[in-house]
Computed example of a mutant assay.
Amino acid sequence: MEARLDVASEMVRLADTMGSRELALRGHAVRARDFLEMADIAATDAEIEWHARLAEEVRDPFDLWLSATCRAMRALLGGRFDEGERLAHAAMTMARRVPGRRAAAENATMCFTAQMYLLRRERGRLEGFVQAIRRLVEHHPEVPAWRAVLAHISCLLGGNGEARGEFDQLDTNDFAGLPRDAVWLGAMSVLSELCVLFGDIPHAAILYQLLLPYAGRNCVAGLSLCMGSAARYLGLLAATLTRWDAATEHFEAALTMNGRMGPPAWVAHTQYDYASALMARGGPGDCERALALVTAARLRRRGPVAKAGWWLVGGAGSPVPLPPLPCTSRPSATTGTSSLRASVARSRSSRATVGRRGRSSGT
């Protein structure tokens, strides 16, 4: 990462020396992506702003599209879903103005679809979206991340058989077939959630080892998507492996990292996932801590994210409404445990409803 950032910084320096705004645009775009992965949001925003200014000066359609895509990504990361959706559509409109660049148009379609995937899963509206992902799987076999997304959506909508088949196609030599490109970490986040959904312990162990060196990074897909701290996914995988101490460490790190960046959705996801892991462990004080985390996650829904119709991805990754607060008074450990378990049961019932709805719609 440091070497890549150094190269991008050198590009910007040379661009300044040469007076090349085109080279500067490339350098600032790469720096923005690297800072986003490093979870340095202030630096990311500064690079996006530099890129936007230069794009307005140069007026190249490709860079105007990229600038709009970056703004959509930041709105989505900040939980401003209505704004993010509007900006994503605006970016797609700009992409159609890029003359004679078929590859650019295809890339724009993939970026737009990735942002719509995030938007729909956060709103609990994945029904009817499967065909769009299937087309990308067919047309872009060189991007196996789309197969991971297809498997994830299929599983969330109740198509476990199809999801498992797609997942198994990606499991070639312990996922070595996944290219280590700009979307690798984003693909790993989706595969991790999918593995947890399956309760697949052997693959959870493999994914955990692959993702562990990136614990301090964000899971990103270029500049189109940020799925929050990799530590959250490590926490989910560690909990699946019943490595409770490691899971606790990862979830705490994810809360800190996501909290520092400020994305309300990923903070609340982490809080609920952490609570689920604590309830599964069932140690002294775990129930009280889980109740506090669920309460905090519920409070986050009272802001702009809740108004956008946001749904929480539960501990298993399924889109469900955040469960009712188990109790309003401070419970004993026994009472709290039974209450929160009842909430989890209600969440599972909601997931089953989502799955049945997906199957009945033909997706």
Rank of each mutant, 00 (worst) to 15 (best):
A148P: 15
G199V: 08
I48Y: 02
A72T: 04
T69I: 12
M257K: 05
R301L: 11
I133Q: 06
E56Q: 12
R260V: 07
P304A: 10
E47Y: 13
G100A: 13
L211P: 08
L223T: 14
T109M: 01
A215L: 05
A352M: 06
E252L: 06
A163N: 15
Q131A: 15
L14N: 04
C327S: 12
W146A: 10
Y117Q: 14
A280G: 02
D63F: 15
E138S: 09
V183R: 10
A24T: 10
A91Y: 05
A55S: 15
F35G: 00
L211T: 05
G285L: 01
V98K: 05
A15H: 04
Q209T: 07
T337L: 12
L299T: 07
L234F: 03
M73K: 13
L25A: 09
W184F: 13
Y272V: 15
R298G: 12
G358N: 04
R359Q: 10
N218A: 14
N218Y: 01
M110E: 14
S67K: 07
R260T: 09
P99R: 08
E166K: 13
M279Q: 01
G282A: 00
A151F: 05
A108K: 06
G27H: 07
A204D: 01
H89G: 01
R121P: 02
G158K: 07
D60V: 09
T69F: 00
G315M: 00
E2N: 14
A42L: 05
A231Q: 04
C155S: 14
P326F: 12
L197P: 00
R13T: 14
D45E: 11
T69M: 12
E162K: 09
R97M: 05
A182Q: 12
D200Q: 05
R356M: 08
L5T: 15
L64C: 06
A265Q: 06
A90E: 07
